[in-house]
Amino acid sequence: MSKSKYVKRSDIWEYYSVDYNDSYTEEMDTEGLRVLKWSMFDSPDKLGSGKMFMESPPVHILDQVYKENRVKGFIEIGYLSKSVADRMSIASQHPYRLGKGVKLRCKNPTVRMKIVRGLIQYGIERIHIYNESIYFDTDNYIRKPELLTFL
């Protein structure tokens, strides 16, 4: 009996695809970023909303952390439009609606801590660590700095 060899999934982006059109091209999607794409932060109902409405500091900081630590992750929530946020019952001053908050999936605890360490090094003060994800935002004027763990 031969055991089947485990094959590691090498690229999470092969499962991520975007239907580009004339008004939103692949060049616009990767503008200023090395690892991530702006469309990863899009609201589910509108292509290009991540590039138009997300604040650039959280995106550029996360892109730099991914590049330095050589990790990849799936962005669960970036910017949310009014219609999607209303369906999810998210308040109007929440960082997702303002384009300042990001929630990313990361199941590996070692990689999760590398990402958190990188975020702290770049001055992110509001980080929530969950079992399978990380939430952070750059909205330090409305809310106090905090580091929460939900393990």
Score class of each variant (00 low, 15 high):
1 M>D: 06
3 K>A: 10
3 K>C: 00
3 K>Q: 06
3 K>R: 08
4 S>A: 08
4 S>D: 09
5 K>R: 13
7 V>R: 10
7 V>K: 14
10 S>A: 13
11 D>Y: 08
11 D>L: 03
14 E>I: 14
14 E>Y: 10
14 E>K: 14
15 Y>R: 12
16 Y>P: 01
17 S>R: 15
18 V>S: 00
20 Y>F: 15
21 N>E: 08
22 D>W: 10
23 S>W: 14
23 S>F: 14
23 S>I: 15
26 E>C: 07
26 E>S: 15
28 M>S: 05
31 E>F: 13
33 L>G: 03
33 L>A: 04
35 V>P: 01
36 L>N: 00
37 K>G: 05
38 W>M: 04
40 M>R: 13
42 D>T: 09
42 D>E: 10
43 S>R: 01
43 S>K: 00
44 P>R: 02
44 P>Y: 01
47 L>F: 10
49 S>F: 06
49 S>E: 02
51 K>G: 03
51 K>W: 05
52 M>C: 03
53 F>A: 07
55 E>C: 12
56 S>Y: 11
58 P>V: 04
59 V>M: 04
60 H>Q: 14
60 H>E: 14
62 L>W: 04
63 D>F: 02
64 Q>P: 00
65 V>P: 02
66 Y>D: 01
67 K>I: 00
67 K>H: 15
68 E>V: 11
69 N>G: 12
70 R>L: 14
70 R>V: 08
73 G>N: 11
74 F>I: 14
75 I>G: 03
75 I>E: 03
75 I>D: 03
76 E>P: 01
76 E>G: 12
77 I>S: 07
77 I>H: 08
81 S>Y: 02
82 K>Q: 11
83 S>T: 15
83 S>L: 11
84 V>G: 02
84 V>E: 11
86 D>C: 03
89 S>E: 10
91 A>P: 04
93 Q>Y: 14
95 P>Q: 05
96 Y>M: 06
97 R>M: 09
97 R>K: 10
98 L>E: 12
98 L>M: 10
99 G>W: 02
100 K>C: 04
100 K>N: 04
102 V>D: 01
102 V>H: 02
102 V>K: 01
103 K>A: 13
103 K>E: 11
103 K>M: 14
104 L>D: 00
105 R>S: 10
106 C>G: 00
107 K>D: 09
107 K>S: 09
107 K>P: 00
107 K>A: 08
109 P>R: 05
109 P>Q: 05
110 T>R: 07
111 V>M: 11
111 V>Q: 11
113 M>I: 05
117 R>Y: 04
119 L>W: 06
122 Y>A: 07
123 G>N: 06
123 G>R: 08
123 G>Q: 11
124 I>Y: 01
124 I>P: 04
126 R>N: 10
128 H>M: 08
128 H>I: 13
129 I>L: 12
130 Y>M: 07
130 Y>E: 08
131 N>A: 08
132 E>I: 07
132 E>W: 10
134 I>M: 07
135 Y>D: 02
135 Y>S: 00
135 Y>F: 14
135 Y>I: 06
136 F>Q: 02
136 F>C: 02
137 D>R: 06
137 D>N: 10
138 T>R: 03
139 D>E: 12
140 N>Y: 03
141 Y>E: 15
141 Y>Q: 13
142 I>Q: 08
143 R>M: 02
143 R>H: 12
144 K>G: 00
147 L>N: 03
148 L>R: 11
150 F>H: 13
151 L>K: 11
